[in-house]
Nucleic acid binder design. Structure first.
Ligand SMILES: [Mn+2]
Ligand SMILES: [Mn+2]
Ligand SMILES: [Zn+2]
Ligand SMILES: [Zn+2]
Lengths: 147, 147
DNA sequence: GACGACTTTTTGACAGAGTCCAAGTTGAGC
DNA sequence: GCTCAACTTGGACTCTGTCAAAAAGTCGTC
């Protein structure tokens, strides 16, 4: 669907700023609000920081964009919504990678015991170290042993 | 085990501040650093915010305390560690409830595709609405219909 | 017990992310 | 064209959390 219709269908006015923010989020998943300010500025010349924050909040509210907030990182945004996917996050460099739900579609919504809660989302963050950071540590260890 | 030995065994000096922070975390699971500052002050008279943060960081590092960071909330601390349990979180009131891992012991560490990451923790947050908040909404809806 | 190296605490400043104003301007949509 | 929504500008402000330097405390050793 064209971006223009996407916005209309979600009941928000179509503006140059909103189109630019949407494209920025699409072009670089898991980016920060600051990243988006820069990308959008490159595209349409100027956009205020406030406008980017307002737009992102609107998009998240309307379900156009998803926000994740890993510990120690500013909020990250992506346009992959509604598929209940999860994230691998590197403790060393902060890299974020998508990972499909291991159980299937909307399955992990089943907690062992829901305690009477009405659950609508299962958010899973897999913490660890990415291939690059694993390698660089190994190298460091090796060189330490070598002298 | 007495708190005193617990600290020694984890290789940290025993201080009044650390004992107070540990007790604060134990007495009220899933509380914020600010909560802990207040609780600890009530107990030992004075303690600096910095000291609470330092202590919590040390405790997390040493595995004495676990930190969780739900989206949109400051970090929360608990003394239930090493059992890979998860959390139910109410979108309305922020209530946090423990829930055992539905898959068993350390199972959800298995992502569908680890992308070469070395995963050491799977943090699962089940989002929804707690029984109390469900009820209060129902009541509101009912009363709206009644006039 | 007292000493002394080392760790912890205190204090106050500071940083990062994000929100909230407010007033004026621009722009979208009917 | 009119009306209401969205954007800009600039600053103040909140909330979490960290940094740095000086003061105080812990604990192994004498
Ligand atoms: Mn993603
Ligand atoms: Mn818990
Ligand atoms: Zn990495
Ligand atoms: Zn609730």
């Amino acid at each position: 669907m064209a971006a223009h219709e996407l916005l209309r269908d979600h009941g928000v006015h179509v503006t140059a700023q909103r189109l630019a923010v949407l494209r920025a989020v699409s072009s670089r998943p898991h980016c920060t609000a600051e990243n988006i300010v820069e990308t959008a500025k490159d595209e349409i010349g100027t956009i205020s920081r406030q406008s980017v924050y307002d737009t992102l909040n609107t998009f998240v509210e309307k379900g156009l964009v998803r926000r994740i907030q890993p510990t120690g990182s500013p909020a990250l945004y992506e346009d992959r919504v509604g598929d209940n996917h999860h994230h691998l996050i590197c403790r060393d460099c902060g890299r974020v990678v998508d990972v499909d739900c291991s159980v299937g579609a909307m399955p992990c919504l089943q907690a062992a015991n829901d305690n009477g809660f009405e659950i609508d989302e299962a958010e899973v963050a897999y913490w660890g170290r990415c291939p690059e950071c694993k390698t660089s540590t190994l190298e460091k260890t090796a060189s330490n042993h070598n002298h």
